[in-house]
Computed example of a mutant assay.
Amino acid sequence: MTPTLRSERLLLTPYAPEDENDFVALLRDEEVCKWMGQERQPEETIRSLFALLFTEVYPNNMFDVWAVRLDGRYVGHAELKRTGNVDGHELICALVRDVWHMGLGTELSYRVVDYGFDDLCLDAVHGCVNAANTRSLAMARKAGFEVVRDVTGEDGAVTRVVTLKAAARNLLRK
């Protein structure tokens, strides 16, 4: 079951049904989608994905997915899940635009990575970052992630696959 997590400023909780409109708004934002490296989806598709959280993901403990809150307000989304994008668990984070440039992405990523290593005992955590997203790539490097490969999409966009191994993370903490 997805646990509740806390960082200095953020509260990460499993989604509740009343979060649906915030979830849809976040994932319908073209700028958010651009930096996540994904196509903007129709609203019906996003609502269907949200419904799957309650019919498939949470009941079957498929992976961890959180609503992210700052001072009680929904400000983002986070996941840690095994995917076909990488050989292992992928960290996925997105924040609403009005909280960008506040250091919350770093704080959120660090908290989910800590959970992956400390609670799930993962050997590595991976991420997929749009190559043009220099701020996220800088944050990933600062956290100890290394670029392991580039993937070029059909549209020519480049995504950088980054990896943080548990041993490297432990060295950074010493």
Rank of each mutant, 00 (worst) to 15 (best):
V86A: 09
L70C: 06
W35H: 12
V32Y: 03
D19N: 09
T2K: 02
A51V: 01
N133G: 04
Y74S: 09
D22M: 04
D29I: 02
V65P: 00
T2M: 03
G105D: 04
D19G: 05
L164W: 04
E18P: 02
L10A: 05
T4C: 12
M1S: 13
M62D: 11
E43P: 06
G156M: 08
D71W: 00
V75W: 05
H77R: 08
N130D: 14
F63Y: 15
E43W: 08
E30A: 15
A67N: 02
E43M: 03
V147Q: 15
Q38K: 12
T134I: 14
G84W: 12
D114I: 10
G144Y: 00
G84C: 07
M102W: 11
L137W: 01
R135K: 13
D118P: 02
H89L: 06
L26E: 07
V68Y: 03
R6D: 00
W66N: 07
L164D: 07
E20P: 06
A67M: 09
E43L: 00
L70V: 05
E20M: 12
T4L: 11
W35Q: 07
E8D: 10
Y58K: 01
H89Y: 15
D22Y: 10
L95A: 06
F145A: 08
V32T: 10
F117A: 10
E39F: 11
M102I: 03
V112K: 04
V125S: 10
V24W: 01
H77G: 00
D123T: 09
G103T: 05
E39A: 14
G37M: 01
C33N: 15
A25Y: 04
T2Y: 07
A51T: 11
V112D: 02
H89W: 13
G84P: 08
T159A: 11
V129G: 03
C121P: 00
A78P: 08
T55A: 07
A143Y: 07
L12K: 07
R173I: 04
F50M: 01
L53N: 06
V75L: 02
T45N: 06
D119C: 14
V68M: 08
G76Q: 05
Y115S: 03
R173K: 14
M1H: 13
H77F: 15
P42F: 07
E56R: 14
V86C: 13
S7K: 02
M62N: 03
C128Q: 14
R173W: 10
C93S: 09
N133Q: 08
S48L: 10
R160D: 10
K142R: 15
P17H: 12
P59M: 04
N61T: 11
A138N: 11
A143G: 13
E146F: 11
V75S: 06
V129Q: 02
G88A: 05
D19I: 05
A94E: 04
L10T: 04
P42E: 14
L108E: 06
T163C: 15
D119S: 13
L49I: 14
T152E: 14
D64Q: 13
L120Y: 05
R6K: 12
T83D: 09
V68L: 04
A25P: 05
F23W: 09
H126F: 15
A16C: 07
A157P: 00
L95C: 08
R28K: 13
G153E: 15
W35P: 06
P14Y: 05
L27K: 05
E31M: 11
L5C: 04
